[in-house]
Amino acid sequence: MLNVPLLCYGKNCDHPPKAESAALEVKDVGFTYGGTSEPVLQDINLRINPGEKVALVGPNGAGKSTLMKLILGLEKIQKGQISIYGHHANACRHRVAMVPQKSTVDWSFPVSVRQVVTMGRYVHLGWFRNPGKKDREAVDQAMETMEISHIADKQVGELSGGQQQRVMLARTLAHNADLMLLDEPLNHVDIATQELMFHTIEKVCRMGKSVLVSTHDLGILTVHFSRVLFLDKTIIGDGPVKDVLTPQNIARAYGFEFHKGMEHESWLNG
């Protein structure tokens, strides 16, 4: 847990985005977990521009979560470079925020929806400071956007899966990051929440922020994303859905044989 240099919990690292810089730039990144010899990630190169909305797809174990952890600064960068709005990853905690997979959170802990959303403001507060008027306004607004104001005082353990996901997204909105990472946000989430999530992501991107969404559910991509990154230890495809989700790529990543005629599968061309 402590293999990452921890720094600047609080205000002192609020670097403004550098002009003309990419929202996210990953160069030649590779990563191997300690105790294993097989790299999880190899030669990752990608660039996301401000205002872009990108899907990160790939089978389980493709390294999607690891890549997100690296971007967020939760794992040490072993090889290559990652920069966020022109700043080295890990140099600034304010620019990037993540909606984690639900399993990493202790939902039984007695906290209210409002308290969880307020946690999104902590990065701006740091030690010894309590949320002020500005923070409370940001929290109220985030809850309103995610339509959870009416359950603000409920305990998070009593909520449905979809509501819990809204709370996490509201927390990320309160964080007010410029690069948002969503790790498998669609698992166990109802359709209404999915729609609200995509609508919110759309809105956030129009404000010039960037969003990277990981998923192993290929079905939703055609509707909501114009750009897809296909990851299987390395980037095997980057571009519009039709060019990336070729039967060959899917067969390669998901490990089944490519059969002639699969290119006519209707959901791929929808």
């Binding site: 600064g73 939760l74 905690r93 925020a97 993540m98 959170v105």
Partner: peptide
């Protein structure tokens, strides 16, 4: 509540 968020 959320160790990952704390680390982040």
């Amino acid at each position: 509540f959320d160790r990952t968020h704390a680390l982040a």
